[in-house]
Simulated assay, not measured.
Amino acid sequence: MRTHKVTFATLAVVAGLSLTACQNDDDAAARTDPSNVATASPSSEAPASGGSDSGGTDSASPEASSGGKDDSAGTGTDDQGTAAKCRTDGLKITAIDNFIDGDRDGTVAVEMKNTGGQDCVIAGFAGVDLKTNAGTLSAERKGAPGDPYVLKTGKTIAFSVTYPLNETGGSGVRITGLVVTPPNETKPVTLPWPGKPSLPVTDGSGEPVRVGPIGSAGQGG
């Protein structure tokens, strides 16, 4: 699926809003926080611009972080020949505010629990879009995808979403929702946004919103 990149500069001029997005790679480290959990069921809503059915097709790399991964949840190599790909309808997806005072960026951890009744394989990047009062903003990829991972039934795996903090003193760009599309899927879910309420309006030189690979969680650095 095509992806589009939008800068915060375009968000500052809503009337002339033109969204494009791309996804960049970089490593993400693990951290979890049980507070402030947002949950949603799979939606039949059409995928937002960051939702991608190609997120799990990137070449595997041993450099990917394993943060946020339950060691008992599955493996990166075993049973792939018999397990099907994880599908949106078989995942319970939740979002948790994972920000710690003093961090340079805000962080949200997105968790996916296998509720499909059988093991499934997941890898790569989920599609992530932020709904805002100025339009939809697609997250860029950060990090290298890990090996395909067998997610055991009833187990959970997570990834991180990092975003710049609004420290301008103004209202900024208000975030109204989080749209997540699992790798190799086209069906998204829409979640309440659990993080800070807004992004800064900048001239385009600020930090983008980033999504880490499956198996990462916490601060993106």
Rank of each mutant, 00 (worst) to 15 (best):
residue 1 M to V: 13
residue 1 M to W: 01
residue 2 R to Q: 10
residue 6 V to P: 04
residue 7 T to Y: 06
residue 9 A to M: 08
residue 11 L to P: 04
residue 12 A to N: 14
residue 13 V to H: 11
residue 18 S to T: 15
residue 19 L to I: 15
residue 20 T to L: 13
residue 21 A to G: 14
residue 22 C to D: 12
residue 24 N to A: 11
residue 25 D to T: 14
residue 25 D to S: 14
residue 27 D to V: 12
residue 31 R to P: 03
residue 33 D to N: 11
residue 36 N to W: 05
residue 36 N to T: 15
residue 37 V to R: 10
residue 37 V to L: 11
residue 39 T to M: 09
residue 39 T to E: 12
residue 40 A to T: 08
residue 42 P to F: 03
residue 45 E to H: 13
residue 48 A to T: 13
residue 50 G to N: 13
residue 51 G to A: 13
residue 53 D to C: 05
residue 54 S to Y: 12
residue 56 G to H: 06
residue 57 T to I: 12
residue 57 T to L: 15
residue 63 E to C: 12
residue 63 E to P: 03
residue 66 S to P: 03
residue 68 G to K: 02
residue 68 G to I: 04
residue 75 T to E: 09
residue 77 T to N: 10
residue 78 D to I: 06
residue 81 G to C: 07
residue 82 T to H: 11
residue 82 T to I: 12
residue 82 T to N: 07
residue 92 K to R: 15
residue 98 N to K: 00
residue 101 D to L: 12
residue 102 G to C: 01
residue 103 D to P: 03
residue 104 R to I: 15
residue 106 G to P: 01
residue 109 A to P: 02
residue 114 N to G: 04
residue 117 G to A: 07
residue 122 I to H: 04
residue 122 I to G: 05
residue 129 D to V: 14
residue 131 K to V: 10
residue 132 T to G: 05
residue 134 A to H: 08
residue 134 A to N: 13
residue 136 T to N: 15
residue 138 S to T: 13
residue 138 S to Q: 09
residue 138 S to W: 02
residue 140 E to W: 04
residue 142 K to W: 12
residue 143 G to H: 04
residue 144 A to C: 08
residue 151 L to N: 02
residue 153 T to D: 09
residue 154 G to P: 11
residue 155 K to I: 02
residue 159 F to N: 00
residue 159 F to Y: 15
residue 161 V to Y: 03
residue 163 Y to I: 05
residue 166 N to Q: 09
residue 166 N to S: 07
residue 173 V to S: 06
residue 173 V to W: 04
residue 173 V to A: 10
residue 175 I to L: 12
residue 176 T to E: 09
residue 177 G to A: 15
residue 178 L to Y: 01
residue 179 V to D: 02
residue 181 T to F: 01
residue 182 P to E: 09
residue 184 N to V: 00
residue 188 P to D: 03
residue 190 T to D: 05
residue 191 L to A: 03
residue 192 P to V: 10
residue 193 W to Y: 14
residue 193 W to G: 00
residue 193 W to I: 08
residue 195 G to I: 00
residue 195 G to S: 08
residue 196 K to F: 11
residue 201 V to P: 00
residue 202 T to K: 14
residue 203 D to C: 07
residue 203 D to E: 11
residue 204 G to V: 10
residue 205 S to K: 14
residue 207 E to V: 14
residue 207 E to G: 06
residue 208 P to N: 10
residue 214 I to Y: 04
residue 215 G to K: 00
residue 217 A to M: 06
residue 218 G to I: 01
residue 221 G to W: 07
